[in-house]
Simulated scan of single mutants.
Amino acid sequence: MKTIFYKLILCLALFITLFFLYKPQINNKIYKGKEKDVYVSVEMNQEVHQILLDDYLLGVVAGEMPASFELEAIKAQVVASRTFVYSRLLSVDNTTNTQVYLDDEKMKVSWNEHYEEYKEKVKKAIKETKGEIITYQGECISALFYSSSNGKSENVENYFIGSAKPYLVSVDSHWDESYDPHFLKEKEFSKTSLKQMFNGSFNYQILSYYPSGRIQTIKINNQNYTGRQMREKLQLASSDFTIVEKSDSYVFKTKGSGHGVGLSQYGAQGMAKEGYDYQQILKHYYQGVEISKNN
């Protein structure tokens, strides 16, 4: 009888031991299988805020793309923005240096009477692309984007300092001219103001263009400037510009808006209007990429 009793005690002790040893393993497996909440560190007004990724993407689309756009264009923007923030290791600021983010109050102001409609539309785009990022050879890409091109996107090395990337190359983007209502812009400078900006005189000669039509090098007085330098110095819409002289001023006429590298937002809108889905749009503007799940 004692032998049976001791055996029962031993079995009970073994069961309890195995239970507590095994239970944490079960919990770990369940925890690892769940999708964790992902937060983005966003610097705003010199303070860092932790924002849920989906909420961040909602605010980014509100700040970066017209929510009146086609759903497939918005999906393309969502995946590009999600990819962009992952490429920055989930740490960004709230400026055009990374991505502009609007909080809920600013969204209400921006969208006004369309607030509820647009919010649900963007949330739908986020949900239907959940976890998707753009990769090249298994690596998260630098998903640059801009408002509209001059008719072609630009090779990354032609605008930004750094090496070429096989997925950021010039491609056709003829949709921009039709869909961007501000495709052509003008900015006028008095001759006096330009002389002050360029050390007392303004004698220019355009030396070279990129195949995309954007200015590569322009000589002003005795100094060479890149198209990007001129765009930033004069705050022009793009680096595709012509200069028209008037009696007491110069008019800079530009095509498109932005640096021209990667996804064109108005190009995406044009493609969506023609029936392309968001993956086709992304694979057009980012050559040779795949759409991958991040979880």
Rank of each mutant, 00 (worst) to 15 (best):
M197A: 12
Y179H: 07
I215P: 14
V171D: 12
L168Y: 15
S178M: 09
K187L: 11
N199T: 11
V171K: 15
H174T: 15
Y209M: 11
Q205I: 01
K191R: 12
Y204D: 11
S170N: 01
L207C: 02
K185I: 05
F202D: 00
G200L: 03
F183S: 03
F189A: 03
F198R: 04
K191P: 05
V169A: 12
S178N: 11
P166H: 00
S201G: 10
L184F: 15
P166C: 03
Q216T: 06
S173P: 02
M197E: 10
L184W: 13
I215W: 10
F202S: 05
L194H: 04
S178F: 14
H182C: 03
Q205D: 08
V169F: 14
S173G: 02
E186H: 06
G213H: 05
I206D: 14
S212D: 00
F202M: 02
H174G: 07
K191V: 04
S212H: 00
L207K: 14
P211S: 08
W175G: 06
M197N: 07
S193R: 07
E177R: 08
I215M: 11
F202E: 07
V169R: 14
T192S: 14
K195E: 09
Y209L: 11
Y204M: 09
N199M: 06
S178C: 07
P181W: 01
P211I: 09
S190W: 03
K165N: 06
P181I: 00
Y209G: 09
I206S: 14
L207V: 09
E186W: 06
D180V: 08
L184H: 15
D180G: 05
I215Q: 14
T192G: 10
F202T: 01
S193K: 07
N203M: 10
P181D: 00
I215L: 13
Y204T: 14
W175E: 15
V169K: 15
D180W: 05
K195A: 03
Y167D: 02
N203T: 15
D176E: 10
L168A: 10
L168F: 14
K185Q: 12
Q196T: 13
L194M: 00
S201C: 11
F198D: 02
F198K: 01
M197C: 06
E186A: 09
S170T: 04
I215C: 13
E177L: 08
Q216R: 13
S178V: 13
Q205V: 00
E186G: 06
I206H: 12
S170D: 03
K165Y: 04
V171T: 15
F183D: 07
F202G: 01
L207M: 09
L207Y: 09
K187F: 06
L184E: 04
H182E: 05
L168R: 13
L184C: 05
F202N: 03
F183E: 01
R214K: 12
K191N: 11
E177W: 02
R214F: 08
I206V: 15
Q196G: 12
L194F: 02
E177K: 13
Y209C: 09
K165V: 05
I206L: 10
P211Q: 08
Q205M: 00
I215V: 15
D180Y: 03
F183P: 08
W175D: 11
V169P: 12
P211G: 07
K191Q: 12
Q196H: 13
P166T: 04
D176R: 09
L184D: 07
F202Q: 04
Y179M: 04
S170K: 02
S173Y: 01
H182G: 02
Y167I: 07
S212R: 02
V169C: 12
